[in-house]
């Protein structure tokens, strides 16, 4: 049972591992990888899919190495009731310098590789669809960026299109083949704008303008869910959106702007953040005669040019 030298065990383990790892990685890359969420609707979505696949292709051999070794050990080196002699102990089994150094070196190389890969994949696609806060440092190279504001409030998302008179819509329509800047903000608590198939996620914080970029490819449908617990109806805070061809988008945007013009007039002027009335009579923090040092009285804190 314990027969065979060290090289014998190593060779067997190595062969099993290599066959398994290569076979699985090949199957994964060709059969599973292309179907991995969140799909390929936008640049960031396909970026996320690509990154996930690369990580998986690296991770599986690592996991397989451990599992193959364990399975091998559990079978080959199981004790028996008849043979009570203890295995060979001594200083040799307490640690092997080469193995330990090799382990640390290998894991360090993998980890640093993953880090470099992740950083490149974060910076090159302009933040990879994540919220970059009010002053993004990784911006898209495209000259035409369509800004869309996402307003989270308990418990729904609404969208404003500043380039179309700032009209507000409960439906998110996005043109295909366009770079989009989502300006995500909230009116009450923290929400998270998770446009799943777009590969975009950005927290909606009150009085914060959280910007996330993506570039749409082909038309398609997508789901928006709230990704940060926001209270009672968090579970029901979702809606659906569409990526439509550019021409169709312009038709929709212009007609909606026209149709909702009266409504838009009643809205607070477009701003990147909206500060609810701090001085309010209903539920404000202060009695009305106290100046909370606030320069804003009601909605409409700053102009878009801030």
């Amino acid at each position: 049972m314990n027969g065979g030298g060290e090289t014998h065990h190593f060779r067997r383990l190595g062969v099993i591992w290599a066959v398994l790892a290569v076979a699985f990685d090949l199957v994964y890359y060709f059969a599973i990888g292309p179907h991995v969420p969140p799909g390929t609707l936008t640049s960031t979505a396909s970026g996320a899919q690509f990154d996930f696949n690369i990580l998986f292709l690296v991770a599986f051999p690592v996991m397989a190495a451990v599992w193959v070794y364990w399975a091998y050990a559990l079978i080959v080196w199981r004790g028996s009731k008849s043979d009570l002699a203890e295995p060979e102990g001594g200083p040799k089994s307490r640690g092997h310098l080469g193995i330990q150094v090799g382990w640390i070196a290998t894991t360090t190389v993998i980890v640093l590789g993953v880090f470099v890969f992740g950083t490149v994949e974060l910076i090159v696609p302009a933040g990879a669809g994540g919220g970059e806060g009010p002053s993004p440092i990784w911006t898209p190279t495209s000259h035409e960026v369509l800004p869309i504001q996402v307003i989270g409030q308990q418990w729904q998302f609404t969208y404003r299109y500043p380039t179309f008179g700032g009209f507000e819509s409960r439906q998110l329509m996005v043109p295909a083949g366009t770079t989009i800047a989502f300006h995500v903000t909230s009116l009450d608590v923290i929400h998270s704008f998770w446009a799943y198939q777009l590969g975009v996620k950005a927290d909606a914080n009150p009085s914060v303008d959280n910007v996330a970029y993506t570039t749409t490819k082909q038309p398609g449908a997508f789901t928006v869910r709230c990704g940060e617990l926001c209270g009672l109806w968090h579970g029901a805070m979702y809606n659906f959106g569409k990526v439509v061809p550019k021409a169709q988008f312009f038709v929709w945007a212009q007609s909606t702007e026209h149709r909702s013009a009266a409504n838009t007039k009643n809205l607070p002027p477009f701003a990147y953040t909206y500060v609810p009335d701090a001085n309010g009579a209903n539920g404000g923090y202060y009695p009305d005669n106290v100046d909370p040092y606030s320069k804003v009285e009601t909605y409409g804190a700053t102009s878009p040019g801030k």
């Binding site: 960031t44 990154d51 996930f52 994949e121 696609p125 990879a128 994540g130 998770w194 799943y196 990704g227």
Partner: peptide, 10 residues
């Protein structure tokens, strides 16, 4: 991994 985190966070 931040890019993957965009999808899986939360």
């Amino acid at each position: 991994d931040v890019p993957v985190n965009v999808t899986v966070h939360g």
